[in-house]
């Protein structure tokens, strides 16, 4: 492997990427360069620690979140997958439930209003008064 600078050679050496003569000539050069030798030793120590870092795992629900974001995103699907159809039944169901609740509420409210009118004492009195007046008029008519 051709290496045209000491930094590149050092990197290749640390990665076991120097072949045959290149590796031995680099080691010979290190013997004559105490500073470079110290640097190589320090870097070897660093790499032994960094390379021990464990693998990191994505969260278990990673795919679900990606799929959810794709479904939520707007615009046409370039791959022809109709993600919106997947969520459509839920949307339709939600609208129907909301409409049923609203209709039930309205009907209950109307019944309650009618009951309130029927139970109004002034209305009952007025109705009684009207009946008496009607009876009196009928009696007068008979006489």
């Amino acid at each position: 492997m051709a290496a045209d600078s000491n930094a590149e050679r050092m990197t290749a050496y640390l990665d076991d990427a120097l072949e045959g003569d290149d590796a031995s000539s680099f080691e010979a050069w290190l013997e004559d360069s105490p500073d470079a030798k110290k640097e190589v030793e320090d870097l070897q120590r660093l790499l032994s620690v960094v390379r021990e870092l464990p693998d990191v795992e994505a969260p278990p629900d990673f795919y679900d979140k990606v799929a959810k974001k794709i479904r939520r995103s707007r615009g046409p699907d370039p791959n022809g997958m109709n993600w919106s159809l997947v969520s459509m039944p839920f949307q339709v169901l939600s609208v129907i439930i909301i409409m049923v609740i609203a209709a039930t509420y309205l009907m209950l409210e109307l019944d309650r209003d009618q009951a309130r009118i029927e139970k109004d004492p002034s209305a009952a009195k007025a109705q009684e008064k009207a009946e008496r007046a009607r009876d009196a008029a009928q009696r007068k008519g008979l006489e």
């Binding site: 930094a7 590149e8 050092m10 990197t11 290749a12 640390l14 640097e39 870097l43």
Partner: peptide, 10 residues
Amino acid sequence: LKSRLHRARL
């Protein structure tokens, strides 16, 4: 790549 990797390690 090699020279940049060297600088990163340093």
